[in-house]
Amino acid sequence: MLLSVQGLRKSFNGRNVLEGVDFSVAAGELVAFLGANGSGKSTTLRCVMGITSPDSGSIRIDGAALDSLQGRELQQTRQRMAMIFQKIHLVPRRTALDNVCAGALSRIPTVRSLTPLLFPADVQQEALDCLDRVGLADRAFDRVGRLSGGQQQRVAVARALCQRADVVLADEPVSALDPHAAEQVMALLRELAHSEGLAVAAVLHQPDLALRYADRSIGLLQGSMTFDLPSTEITAEHLDTLYAPDRNPSVDRTQAA
């Protein structure tokens, strides 16, 4: 397993957000996280990414536990993971190519990264190749702010590729996109997993997208996993437990507690 996570726990101000989450993502696999708002999907990804530090739990990349690594080795292992954000988080005034180059900053000396004019030629070529892989090589010199939302998210994917990440964590990558663009981005993520062997974990708000694009879906309810199944085996009952918990008497009791 390229990414494996065990016993992930996190609480904010005494409120348990994650109560022991275990999952893994293999190379070449797209895994979807489903759950209502506040179920801990995004916190899971942010803990794995290291944006939020978990209270406990182990995270392994390609077998190497992150908490056993230090310094440069830890940094290099962490960089095998890249994050895609709901709000895309590109710099709108810069070109698509310059934004993609920024994914490679950790490989560029600081003095050569002060302005895009100084970015090394090989990095720029690699960034262009990454844009080509997401189908946007022809827009390389357009300002990102002039691209559509779907195109911007694909540029963000190209930035993750330029980081040379083999684990991609996508936090609601299509929530801000129109349905057509959402399909395009999901198809791109699936293709990157299947044909380039990336391990992709995506938090999704639309179960139908998960069922159609993800190889496996994981359901989260109040910080605990309720299912981890191939998407073909997910039924309407599974989804009901996530999004309509008040219809489920066993959950009612935990809410009252």
């Binding site: 990414m49 890249a82 994050m83 954000f85 895309i88 988080h89 920024a102 600081t110 990264s113 930035r159």
Partner: peptide
Amino acid sequence: AGPQEALRTAGAN
């Protein structure tokens, strides 16, 4: 703060 956070997770100093 989003773009800055994105670059931090990508390993930029």
